[in-house]
Design a binder for these strands. Structure first.
Lengths: 271, 271
DNA sequence: GTCGGTAGTGAATCTACGA
DNA sequence: CTCGTAGATTCACTACCGA
């Protein structure tokens, strides 16, 4: 095993690529995986993302007058996005399969995703041999408005176990987690999660667990895990974020609170 | 076209099988499809899916001695709820393809589903040639507990359009719809939706639209559509529920309000 | 009327066991 | 073995009855 970038009594952080590091971790050594991978993988996708949605996700052609023409075969409905979706599915299955190996029997697996990748993510989870148990909804409370559309202010957590569910805690949490994301001025990572949403997930994990996050980012999962009394193993590819993570983990280990820049929650009645 | 079971100036109801009726409806004749098909859900276990709906989705309370007690209230059951994943995908694709044909270009398609069938439903929507645009979350506020698990109290609405999105309304609705379901004493269908959640969906539909629901049930979609000033075409296979639907539609057409037995909403802070 | 206790309920899930 | 049925479980909330 390569030398950790940071290590203390309860936290270990590797500054390395996720999959390579996962392959070095021992079988059945971890109680829970809680992670937030990049939602879209590969450079080929970047260009596609900038096209209008009706071109990007469908095989729409144009009539001679410039109006759009729907694809004629139903297969075309799957093709527009196929390369990206397939690549994401394969990549996800690979690292999730490693997580399944590393997890103890009955261990917990939780992965964040957005609405568009949710079906691919549940496929990947099941392809990895994990048992899909639930979908939790993270309601961020705020989202970018688009006229005549739903405001998109939720992400999803796909919840699974490695085989039969062992040692259930005596908790019955809501499947809707309402926490505002850290404001841009206080956060250090573009897609940083609030500590609270991870803490909510951790209520389902037995005390004193080992929690792994192969896409640690700024180590919000680590902060929440340490504050809940668990141990933490993180992997982060970027040296910048590895440094940020090490600093946050060190701070928490030394007994200082880290609220992840979370603001007061104000979820008014939307209906 | 067969004779409608019920008809007035703004509402039409067919007491017939959904797919057969859809095949008779003219192309590009409808502005929106909003529907709630049977989910064929109800458990990963082998036999659980195959029970009749009125058994598989009903609660078993506890006697004071700890023994189980069957529910006392009764609903007419519904059929077509026992397909496996593969069958559900194929069946969904077929009726959704008919809906795509019946929808005007730019028309809206919305279908309810649960967490287990959500990926299959988005596949079916795309296989039918519709453009998947969003997932809305219906938060029912209350759900059955299982120790050490998330309380499951949400359903999902897969939102799609028939090609490019036309005539967006000047609204920016939340993607989380919070409405309690009608309580058992006030509702007439086992899986009856509150009128409010349909009304929320209808805010995205242009005024004076024609709304189709091929799985009308007790016609909650029809009630919401008529109250919002739209026209309604419903299809319901069961004669019992066709009669219930006709009565509700008649009542609304005659100017009486129907709140669908919806109660006051109390969504306290869960976090 | 109001208050408080009791019974009923849920778009489930999982185990046990006999055929 | 597989298939099918019976039974146990769990809490927030509502309906309803009697005082």
């Amino acid at each position: 095993m390569t030398t950790p970038y940071y290590e203390d009594e309860r936290a270990t952080l590797h500054n390395a690529e996720a999959l390579a590091t996962l392959r070095e971790l021992p079988t059945a050594s971890v109680d829970a995986v809680i992670t937030d991978p990049p939602y879209s993988s590969g450079g080929a996708m970047r260009g596609d993302r900038q096209q209008p949605a009706e071109k990007k996700y469908r095989g729409w052609s144009q009539n001679s007058d410039g109006s759009s023409k729907a694809p004629t075969s139903t297969y075309a409905g799957f093709t527009g996005d196929t390369r990206d979706q397939r690549g994401y599915l394969v990549w996800s299955s690979i690292w999730m399969t490693e997580c399944q190996r590393i997890l103890k029997p009955g261990g917990t697996f939780a992965v964040f995703t957005d609405w568009r990748q949710l079906p691919t993510t549940t496929d990947a989870v099941q392809a990895a041999g994990l048992v899909w148990r639930a979908v939790a909804v993270w309601d961020k409370g705020i989202g970018r408005p688009v006229k005549g559309r739903f405001r998109n202010h939720v992400e999803y957590v796909v919840w699974a176990t490695n085989g039969p569910h062992s040692s259930p805690q005596d908790v019955y949490p809501s499947t809707v987690l309402r926490h505002t994301p850290p404001t841009s001025s206080r956060r250090v990572h573009l897609t940083e999660k609030p500590v609270g949403v991870i803490s909510d997930l951790l209520t389902l994990i037995p005390a004193g667990s080992v929690v792994l996050d192969p896409f640690a980012g700024s180590a919000t999962t680590g902060v929440a895990a340490l504050e809940a009394g668990h141990r933490f193993i993180g992997v982060e590819m970027s040296e910048h974020y590895a440094e940020v993570s090490a600093n946050r983990l060190r701070t928490v280990t030394q007994g200082c609170r880290d609220d992840g820049g979370q603001d007061a929650i104000d979820f008014g009645e939307s209906a």
